[in-house]
Design a binder for these strands. Structure first.
Lengths: 158, 158
DNA sequence: GTATTCAGGACATTTAGTATCCAGGTTATG
DNA sequence: CATAACCTGGATACTAAATGTCCTGAATAC
């Protein structure tokens, strides 16, 4: 899995605490000492996916496009890593005995179904966790986190 | 995910129908028109993992090392693809504010925990499905499959 | 108008996946 | 014993994907 998924999730949690004002890619990158230009690519992907909104120019930057309760971890994984399953069925049964050339073995192969079923439980789990859930749990453990985050953004003004 | 996982799973199902006699890598590869030398590498990995046993020399080949009811899809994924999770936590929180340099953020980071939890459900699902389950379901849908498989192995004698 | 910032294409670099080949060891068979 | 079939594992090559940088162009606050 793309490392950008981790960056994107942490950035979205931080953005949930910067509600109201846009944060530049430069400051989001400086927060965790990440390469600015590359993080910017991930932020662009989140924007294309409708998870973030972006504003150009001075005072510009990124912010969450909707309520963090309505942004799931799965949304972020799909935006950064793409919609494909980890297990890719190449329909090798088509090369086996008694194969039907017109059949779609990605659908009817028992192994393919089992793997897809497992990935479905994985995705269902990720879909059930929102950025707000994560942020709330962080606050429960570390109440100062939102203030710390806002302060750090402010101090990374450059 | 490594494409060899798909090859290995289909090969194990086929081997469950060849019970008693070893099948060579060449015939296992010819079954689905796969590159012999590369499939052989995956079979070696399955052997190292204790899923297959191998015999050298004429009449040699591979067979299941244990009852197919006791070989899970997860066993095969781990043998071929390795034990690592898809999501790899790089502990970027160590670069953030208020970080504890001695803390293990792969354990305590809320995002890392959520991702790990989702992968756990995935693995649990794969662990609950055995090669025998898969083979039984194939037989239920296509009763001739075991005979077809044995015949094909016999005809690929070369 | 100028400085700041996002958008996105064009590279360059590194790493992982996909193969191929060969030399060496094992074993059935005549 | 000689031979051929077969697995083992290292070396190597090729390809694709992930990672990272750079630059031009467009939008916007001041």
């Amino acid at each position: 899995m793309n490392e950008g998924v981790e960056w994107a999730m942490h950035s979205c949690v931080n953005l949930s605490w910067a509600a109201g004002e846009a944060v530049t890619a430069k400051r989001l990158a400086a927060f965790y000492n990440l390469p600015t230009a590359y993080l910017n690519k991930q932020l662009q992907a989140l924007t294309r996916a409708g998870i973030l909104t972006s504003v150009s120019g001075p005072k510009g930057g990124f912010q969450l496009a909707r309520d963090p309760r309505n942004i799931s971890l799965l949304d972020i994984v799909v935006a950064i890593d793409g919609p494909d399953d980890a297990f890719r069925c190449t329909e090798i049964l088509k090369e086996g005995p008694g194969a039907d050339a017109r059949a779609d073995y990605t659908k009817i192969c028992v192994i393919s179904q089992a793997m897809r079923g497992a990935e479905l439980t994985y995705r269902r789990e990720l879909a059930s966790r929102s950025i707000a859930d994560i942020a709330d749990e962080v606050v429960r453990r570390t109440p100062a986190a939102p203030d710390d985050t806002r302060n750090r953004f402010a101090n990374l003004k450059s």
